[in-house]
Design a protein around this nucleic acid. Sequence first.
DNA 1: CCATAAACAGACAGACTTGTCTGTAAAGTG
DNA 2: CACTTTACAGACAAGTCTGTCTGTTTATGG
Lengths: 185, 185
Amino acid sequence: MKKPNAKDRILETAGELFFQRGYSGVGINEIIDKAGTAKASFYQHFPSKESLCEAWLQDMHDRSSVHHGELLASGLPPQEMAAAYFTRLADFLKAGDFRGCPYSNTGAVSDENCLGIVKLIRHHKESTRVFFRKIASLAISDPARSETIGDRLFVLYSGATAEAQNLKSLWPVEIAREAAEELLT
Amino acid sequence: MKKPNAKDRILETAGELFFQRGYSGVGINEIIDKAGTAKASFYQHFPSKESLCEAWLQDMHDRSSVHHGELLASGLPPQEMAAAYFTRLADFLKAGDFRGCPYSNTGAVSDENCLGIVKLIRHHKESTRVFFRKIASLAISDPARSETIGDRLFVLYSGATAEAQNLKSLWPVEIAREAAEELLT
DNA sequence: CCATAAACAGACAGACTTGTCTGTAAAGTG
DNA sequence: CACTTTACAGACAAGTCTGTCTGTTTATGG
């Protein structure tokens, strides 16, 4: 009988629900019901729904940073690094019922006065861009060219995620993976 | 003093608002207020908010089909065709305050029981994919290869649109345009 | 044992949502 | 003029949402 504290349960439950149905599609009441906490407990830990969303995005970003770091430290050749990344992306999308990128999905519904959320999305995306640039720099010696290729990998990754969601299919990820491997040759 | 009929005013107003703030971020009341119609008039033309959204998506799809057809019939060499497409995409995003792809944004907030909306999104995306495949077929003789390149153009286009929205910047579109030109060489 | 902190339950306010309803006014058509 | 279509105005229902509040229970440390 695992029973983490209320804050962790809320964060985990909210994460699943936000991911599955989107930030605007989930209400506080459902979150606390599914997490088994009282509303007062929720507002003791999070001042608002928006701040809960920020905590969720931050949490995911930290996890993905770890993953990026591990992959970069793996010593794999860059093509295989990219291939491993896209393979893992495919697994992630399939497991999540093709719900796409949580950051992009959240950005699509948060207006510009959600400053904290917008900033977290931007920060994560920029950090992902840097990750791809690092992969590219392992395969391409010319710095300017490697930055360009890294950015292309980033755009491919984003498009693959978005269209896998729209089309509920994995072929965009396969296409992106192949393209990435060719770019890194 | 132009005064189109109520249905057209509703459709136009809703289109602007949906695009700017997302399907779930705009209510019927605001739409009819800004369109200057009564609620009863709205429900005389559209059985629900969802059907209004479908009409909007269909309307945009029809317009983009015309644009795709014109570009394909322009007689331009494929690289220039793609370049023109991405240039126009950049203009569109800039003019729309980097609100990204209306279809993807709508898909991010419509659950799976919005069957009509989901179908329209898929249809538009598949049709855009076909458009890029046609461009690729003008540059690449091998059919299998040209389909692959077309799909890559499609993924690049999607990623460029999504990340221009997230980062509020045009560089993803520039990157995608350059990559597209290289793919078609 | 007792005090303090944390989480519980749940009513409530106030503002929003979509959609229905009644009734009125204007415009076009015979 | 009479009739029909179209649109107007706006109250209303029934439900949702976030956030606040009061009060009770449970657990933990001294």
